[in-house]
Amino acid sequence: MRAIDRRNALVGTLAAVIGGGTAPAQTPPPTVAGRARDPRETIDLWPGGAPGMPARAPVETVVERSTDPRQSDRAVHGIVRPRLVVFRPATPNGAAVLVTPGGGYRWVVIDKEGYEVGQWLSARGYTVFVLFYRLPGDGWAAGPDVALSDAQRAIRLIRARADAYGIDPGKVTAMGFSAGGHVCGDLATRFATATYAPVDAADRLSARPDRAAPIYAVQSMSAPLAHAGSRTLLIGSDAAPSQERAHTPAHNVTRDTPPCFLVHAEDDDVVPVGNTLEMRAALRAAGVSVETHLFAQGGHGFGIRKAADKPARAWLELFRTWAEAGSPV
């Protein structure tokens, strides 16, 4: 195990400093009226509010995109109080997963890449934290690093509260989808980048996830692989090549990048499969353990529900097998 992973000695002390136990639910989960079955437990990331507030504060808004009254498909934008929504398992297996849903950096999907994944994993023993992160197009001072700031802070808080949740702080995986997969890949490759000033003792902990699973992830910020909408909202339509490279995870892979689990459908017509292939090549070149699953069919954004009748439905069980096999960290 590399020196960067030797971070666990501080965790017990820091949990006591921060207050131990479960953080009070300061901000409810993003929701719409009538969703009584939504999870209730949340953890606000930033005491006193998130840093770098825009001159005009965004207004958090939840949009219901589904026309089927039996199945919700919500998304939230204008996030001002980034937070974790917690899914506790009946019997914790000691492992945690930080989930970053997609949404093209336009919004953050709630149901199909957030709560549904949280429910599936927590039913199998994982303690799951779904992250509702700030969006780069809202004018935060951190600019294109604002979602990464939230992801770094989230990993540190999960580790700081490991004892309270029955988590091994050395078993924290990051999983992200589409643009949330970019957040995940950014975290896996730039976890040590200083994107915010420390606010409390938790920020003394490492933000490096022990494993990472970018799923049909936005990865490249350069044509022809870039997803145009995500690129524009993250770095602008006229960004220089240096900016493109700085925010393309494949260009930031090092030997300290954690082992990765990659999934993509080859018929994805929104985020080309070349994003995952480029990331895989960079991981292999750096000597980082990587497992890759490509499916002939699945399109984009299949999550759990849209993969139900396709071979791509196997991806979560494949992830579980990989995660529990004890790949080197």
Rank of each mutant, 00 (worst) to 15 (best):
A160P: 00
A188F: 06
P272N: 03
R153C: 00
A323W: 14
T67L: 10
Y216C: 04
A201G: 07
A312V: 15
P30Q: 04
D186W: 11
G298C: 09
W322V: 09
V253P: 01
A323Q: 15
S178V: 09
R88Q: 05
G78Y: 09
A212T: 06
A147V: 14
R320L: 13
R204G: 14
Q219T: 12
P241V: 08
W315M: 04
H247A: 11
R7E: 14
A314K: 00
D150P: 06
G176R: 15
A9C: 02
S66I: 05
P101A: 08
A55Q: 11
Q219G: 08
V183N: 14
G274N: 10
D269Q: 06
I110A: 11
E244Q: 15
P272F: 10
R211C: 01
H293N: 08
W140R: 15
V263E: 02
R231I: 02
D111F: 13
V273G: 01
G94K: 10
R6I: 02
K310N: 07
L45N: 11
T173A: 15
P24T: 14
I79E: 01
M279W: 08
V62G: 03
T127I: 14
G12C: 02
T42W: 06
A246L: 10
S327I: 14
L234Q: 06
Q152E: 10
P328T: 11
A207G: 06
R161W: 12
P101K: 10
G12D: 09
L148W: 14
R7D: 12
R320F: 13
A226I: 05
H247V: 06
R313A: 10
V253C: 00
P259N: 04
N8F: 02
T61C: 02
D73C: 09
V80P: 01
Y105A: 14
H182I: 11
A174L: 13
I18A: 07
V128C: 02
R56C: 10
A296Q: 11
D73Y: 09
Y196Q: 04
F87Q: 05
D138M: 09
F302Q: 02
I4M: 02
L131I: 13
V62T: 09
D168M: 05
V62Y: 07
H182N: 02
V80A: 12
A213Y: 08
R106A: 12
V63M: 05
Y115A: 11
R153I: 09
I110G: 01
T61S: 06
V11H: 00
V130G: 03
A325H: 03
R37K: 12
T13M: 11
V117N: 00
F191A: 04
A296N: 07
V172Q: 15
A239W: 04
R6S: 10
R313H: 03
Y115W: 09
A154E: 03
T232E: 07
P214A: 03
V97H: 02
P69E: 08
S122L: 05
D68H: 04
R208W: 05
A141D: 13
D210Y: 13
P30L: 00
A164G: 07
K171H: 15
S72P: 00
G274E: 08
A282P: 00
P272L: 12
I304F: 11
Y133I: 02
T248P: 00
T292F: 00
P241T: 12
L316T: 13
W322K: 05
I155W: 13
V85K: 08
L233C: 04
Y165I: 05
A75S: 09
E60K: 10
V199T: 13
R70M: 08
W140P: 04
S222I: 08
K306R: 14
H293C: 03
P39E: 10
V86S: 09
W315Y: 14
L135N: 14
